[in-house]
């Protein structure tokens, strides 16, 4: 491990020292500086204030700032740890760290649980899963009758809800995911391993010297 010191600098509100962030996350200092290049692009796309607003998040995901999507909004809300309606750089890095290929599986399972626990009750309820299925169908061309949706829910809960209380608790979720690892596929972003290659300009903007 190197020894770092940061040069004094002027940054937008919400900026956090890469050295401090590296000690809290799976990322190296260089990777965090590369992520800052990405963050600057996203956070200046609609309102140039150094913070990611929901419209900017949607624009980055869908190339459309007005496209409403239940899941993208849930991801945004989970990234927005301070719940002030915007994502600052520290929140961006800490949340993305969960998606790193080297992040603990337990963190990924926990993040997905929070994502699907729409009402933040500590349980994934059958009604929530139905709401998510309907939202998914509305964004695709797939059409399923209510009977088919109920059959899918029956099958899913028969497998996941082992104590039969019509809701999935954290432990049931962990066991279910371990039996169905493909459910965690989108919780890992291979890009995060090559982030310094994807954003090489971080080198020119680096404020941290390895001494």
């Amino acid at each position: 491990m190197g020894c770092f010191h940061s040069k004094p600098s002027q940054h937008a509100a919400g900026y956090e020292d890469p050295v401090a962030l590296a000690s809290d996350t799976t990322f190296s200092v260089s990777e965090i500086e590369a992520l800052y290049e990405l963050f600057k692009k996203i956070s200046s796309s609609v309102i140039d204030d150094g913070l990611i607003h929901k419209e900017e998040f949607r624009l980055a995901l869908f190339k459309n700032s007005k496209k409403e999507n239940l899941f993208a909004d849930r991801v945004f809300d989970l990234f927005d740890v301070k719940r002030n309606g915007v994502i600052d750089f520290g929140e961006f890095v800490r949340s993305l760290s969960v998606f790193h290929p080297n992040a603990p599986l337990e963190d990924k399972i926990d993040f997905a649980f929070q994502l699907y626990d729409l009402r933040r009750t500590g349980f994934i309820e059958r009604e929530e899963v139905k709401q998510m299925l309907i939202a998914l169908l509305s964004e695709s061309d797939m059409k399923l009758s209510d009977d088919v949706i109920e059959t899918i829910l029956d099958k899913t809960f028969a497998e996941a809800d082992t104590n039969n209380d019509s809701r999935i608790d954290k432990e049931e979720w962990q066991n279910f995911v371990l039996r169905n690892p493909s459910l965690m596929k989108n919780m890992t972003l291979p890009y995060l391993k090559d982030i310094t290659t994807a954003f090489p300009s971080f080198v020119f903007n680096s404020e941290v010297e390895d001494v």
């Binding site: 993208a72 998510m132 972003l189």
Partner: peptide
């Protein structure tokens, strides 16, 4: 042969954050 609900849900475009890394 119905799929499991979460398999379907996990295909949502809103959950695919790799789009964040596409060239802007």
């Amino acid at each position: 042969n119905p799929m499991n609900a979460f398999e379907l849900i996990s295909t949502s475009q809103g959950l695919d954050l790799s789009a964040l890394f596409e060239e802007k």
